[in-house]
Design a protein around this nucleic acid. Structure first.
Length: 837
RNA sequence: GCCGGGUUGGCGGAAUGGCAGACGCUGCGGCCUCAAAAGCCGCUGUCCGAAAGGGCGUGUGGGUUCGAGUCCCACACCCGGCACCA
């Protein structure tokens, strides 16, 4: 049949019966064990309390196309942890599901003239099949899809609970708009002024949209990160911290002509209040429109139009000239009564702080740039010893001596300056210490079809009315093809039969809210649903959640460092406040795997450097691909496929497999009589491997197993021989340890060793502490810190004996010639360092 | 600019303050073979040396220490985040 099997591949490496080593057919092994495992169903969480529970969670996939290298890597790493826990005797919950709402399915459906569900569920089946083949230890009984009505019913239910608590609200304001996807975007989905998904330049629109009030939780989202320090990657915590963007300062009230109420500004430098020489309002804020003097209306409106046309890309371009327009009004500085002109400008943002600032050009670069552009005065109130900003054009932001600052004059540091002025403002009722956040509320409405409908009805008489719980889910109508085309309003708005209903409150004519929710809402609580995926009384069974959550380990890509993880943390806190759960952080530990790149660049169609996972698996087998990814380096580092050697991995697996055929002792042979040297290597390897897995150093764990394999090979060929029970012990240990990474090969070995499936539940080998003790250690002898000799000594050697032995060593004597020994440092039994001169 | 992470052979990467380079890839040599493939064995940081042996080596410069890849200070470069956020 196969006359050409010389290619490194999955076929038999050698023809049978020719005296060569027997062949390991990885493809046949995969086909052999899959049905056996499916029948055994070994990875179903028992949830019976018999064993300690562990929740292994991996970020659920989005069903576009088949699995790719990225999935392969994250799942391989994740599975090491899950399978290790099984071997350690835990009751593991390792669920899988699909984040199955979203735009790509909708766009595909338009092209194919079908309902997005068709494409979505077909892809899910393809991926599910691939995951099964890939041998991940998922508990398939907990499978969920966020686009199933029985799932999104509860997404809608949660939305309504949030709304009852004032955490979901509608407001009319400028929003980010993606002209390509024809929908609004959350702040988190705008990257450098472009759409995170499609890369189109984001523009602004004024729309009435639903928001989640994440800002109410800003401080807690920040504070609770303390609990995650050490178990979450530092960079994720940093990214969230940056995103939340807490800043401390003060609110200061300014009286403004043409307005009854004073205008509040936020500033981090209230101590420079005496240096405020003008006042700026965001051009697109309602306040600017309100206070603009009649004679300045024309230029103001022209300017505002210009600002509105700008995209974020324009705004962000650096070295940009400051623009603005005088509003014909003055504001009054609350500490010195000075009248300062009020300007509108676009460098002040409408949705940060109060949308208005006091401008202190001497000590803020942006204000200084503006002042120099429009010839506004600059007054220095902090003398930092640097040159006058008015002359240099460089604002000074550091500590210094206060001048021209009334009661602050003479103080020399910011901290006391700030507290002094805040006290004064509070006493005068003109301000107070305040904290401000960069974080904005989460815009959750989307003008697209393939998402959970927002369960709200708009009634002319009753206004906004929640769909009663017993009428949930609000299911999507069966739209397809052209009906889904983006038109700037949700496709649902045109589905008249669906949109027009009776008001649930008054029975009068009403319309459904035709927007759907951001798919990040779906993924903000799926990990809770997994605990009781078929529960019908609520989104989750509180008892089941109490048993499993928080997830012990979450594994996924760093691309979700802000979006998904921040939202999930927010949901968790809200559910906690609702009394539905008793913890405040959903994920106890987080592992961000690196990306798989190819030839230095991330894989993409346009670069033509994609590596096809299916082809790799066909060529090298599942186990070799998984092994390659796990062994490549630390899990959190990017790995370049071009640097890796799946052929080498396959070679190793074949070597290991042969090992299992070489064992000639019977199962249950008395290992106590086995070769001690090999046994020591085995027990050391098992001991180290456990620690390494727990420290998530999977690549090093693989290296330890390789060392054991090498030692075993040697023992068989030129040591104790294949019949020694220590060889069986070693090979069995290899099979169990390898089952975390290469389950098919491990299973095949296990069978060849005379055991019943499945090796996945064989249990982590017990370590005999006595075998970890070495009977001799290599002590190193240094002279002046340089290595001069090695000594084989007993671990119990005394300091004096070791020193004597070291000083007697010929090499040491030689290097001490003509020198006087000043000092000898002895760290028995490992080291002697002789200090001489 | 601010915050976080990093920099070790030809390559991916190992090293509780104590033998730098584990494990693997690549390369070279050998065994087996008519030959090759596969497999197995050995070598593979760099310089001097026939060898024994020795010098030098973890981005740069300082410091602490008997001893520093590891700790401290300064700097350079790379990666990631935030950034007209008051």
């Amino acid at each position: 049949m196969s006359e050409q099997t010389t290619e490194q591949g999955t076929g038999p490496a050698t023809e049978e019966g020719r005296g060569g080593p027997p062949a390991y057919d990885i493809a046949a092994t995969q086909d052999k064990w899959r049905p056996v495992w499916e029948k055994l169903d070994p990875f179903r969480a028992a949830d019976d309390g018999a064993r300690e529970r562990r929740y292994a969670l991996t970020m659920f996939p989005y069903p576009s196309g088949d699995l790719h290298m990225g999935h392969a890597e994250v799942m391989a790493l994740h599975d090491v942890i899950a399978r290790y826990w099984w071997q350690r005797g835990f009751d593991v919950m390792n669920p899988i599901g699909w984040d199955s709402f979203g735009l790509p399915a909708e766009n595909a459906a338009i092209k194919r003239d079908e309902n997005p569900a068709t494409y979505t569920y077909a892809n899910i089946e393809t991926q599910a099949e691939s995951f099964r083949r890939y041998g991940i230890s998922f508990d398939w009984s907990r499978r969920l899809h966020t686009s199933d009505p029985e799932y999104y019913r509860w997404t809608q239910w949660l939305f309504l609970r949030f709304r009852e608590r004032g955490l979901a609200y509608r407001k009319f304001s400028p929003v980010n708009w993606c002209p390509n996807d024809q929908t609004v975007l959350a702040n988190e989905q705008v990257v450098q002024g472009t759409c995170e998904r499609c890369g189109a330049e984001v523009t602004k629109r004024e729309l009435s949209q639903w928001y989640f009030k994440v800002t109410d939780y800003a401080q807690r989202l920040l504070d609770d990160m303390d609990m995650l320090r050490g178990t979450w990657p530092e960079r994720v915590l940093t990214m969230q911290r940056n995103w939340i963007g807490r800043s401390e300062g003060a609110h200061v009230e300014f009286e403004v002509e043409g307005r009854e109420e004073p205008v509040t500004v936020f500033t981090t430098r209230p101590d420079t209040l005496y240096g405020a020489t003008f006042f700026v309002v965001a051009a697109d804020a309602a306040l600017a429109d309100e206070i603009c003097a009649p004679e300045q209306r024309e230029p103001f409106e022209a300017y505002r139009e210009q600002v509105r046309r700008e995209t974020d890309i324009d705004r962000l371009s650096s070295e940009r000239e400051k623009t603005g327009v005088f509003l014909g009004r003055h504001a009054v500085n609350p500490v010195n009564g000075e009248r300062v002109p009020v300007w509108a400008a676009d460098y002040v943002l409408a949705d940060y702080g109060t949308g208005a600032i006091m401008a202190v050009p001497a000590h803020d670069q942006r204000d200084l740039d503006f002042a120099r552009t429009f010839g506004l005065p600059v007054r220095r109130v902090v003398d930092t010893g640097e040159d006058n900003p008015e002359e240099t054009g460089v604002a000074t932001g550091g500590d210094g001596r206060y001048v021209n600052s009334g009661e602050l004059d003479g103080l020399t540091d910011k901290t006391s300056g700030i507290s002094r002025i805040v006290e004064r403002l509070e006493a005068d009722g003109r301000g107070r210490g305040a904290v401000n956040f960069r974080l904005r509320d989460w815009l959750l409405s989307r003008q697209r079809f393939w998402g959970p409908p927002i369960p709200i009805v708009h009634c002319d008489r009753c206004g906004e009315v929640a769909v009663p719980d017993d009428q949930l889910p609000v299911e999507l109508p069966d739209l397809r093809g052209a009906d889904l085309k983006p038109k700037g309003v949700s496709p649902l708005a045109a589905a008249t039969d669906w949109v027009n209903i009776e008001c649930p409150r008054c029975g009068g004519p009403a319309k459904r809210d035709s927007d759907t929710m951001d798919t990040f809402v779906d993924s903000s609580w799926y990990f809770l649903r997994y605990c009781s995926p078929h529960y019908t009384e609520g989104p989750f069974d509180p008892e089941a959640v109490r048993r499993w959550m928080p997830a012990h380990q979450y594994v996924g890509g760093v691309e979700h460092a802000i979006l998904h993880l921040l939202y999930s943390r927010f949901f968790t806190k809200v559910l906690h406040d609702m009394g539905m759960i008793d913890f405040v952080e959903p994920f106890a530990a987080l592992l961000n795997q690196g990306q798989v790149i190819n030839r230095g660049k991330s894989m993409s169609k346009s670069l033509g450097n994609g590596v096809n996972l299916g082809e790799m698996i066909d060529q090298y087998g599942v186990d070799a691909v998984r092994l390659t990814l796990v062994f490549a380096g630390p899990p959190e580092d990017d790995i370049d496929w071009a640097d890796l050697s799946p052929g080498g991995s396959l070679k190793f697996l074949q070597r290991v497999w042969r090992l299992s055929g070489d064992v000639t002792s019977a199962t249950g042979a008395d290992v106590a009589t086995g070769d001690v040297a090999l046994r020591k290597v085995t027990h050391r390897a098992v001991h180290d491997a456990a620690e390494l897995v727990e420290g998530q150093r999977f690549n090093v764990m693989v290296a330890r197993v390789m060392e054991l394999v090498n030692a075993t090979r040697k023992a068989i060929d030129s040591g104790c021989g294949p019949a020694d029970p220590a060889v069986r012990e070693a090979v069995e240990a290899v099979a169990v340890m390898l089952s975390l990474v290469a389950p098919y090969t491990a299973e095949e070995m296990w069978e060849r060793l005379g055991h019943e499936p499945t090796v996945a539940k064989a249990g982590w080998p017990a370590v005999d502490q006595a075998l970890l003790v070495e009977e001799s250690v290599t002590a190193i002898v240094q002279v002046q810190g340089k290595l001069r000799a090695r000594l084989e000594v007993t671990p119990s050697i005394s300091a004096a004996d070791l020193e004597a032995k070291a000083l007697a060593d010929p090499a040491v004597v030689r290097s001490l010639e003509g020198k006087t020994v000043r000092k000898v440092i002895v760290r028995e039994p490992n080291l002697v360092n002789v200090v001489a001169s």
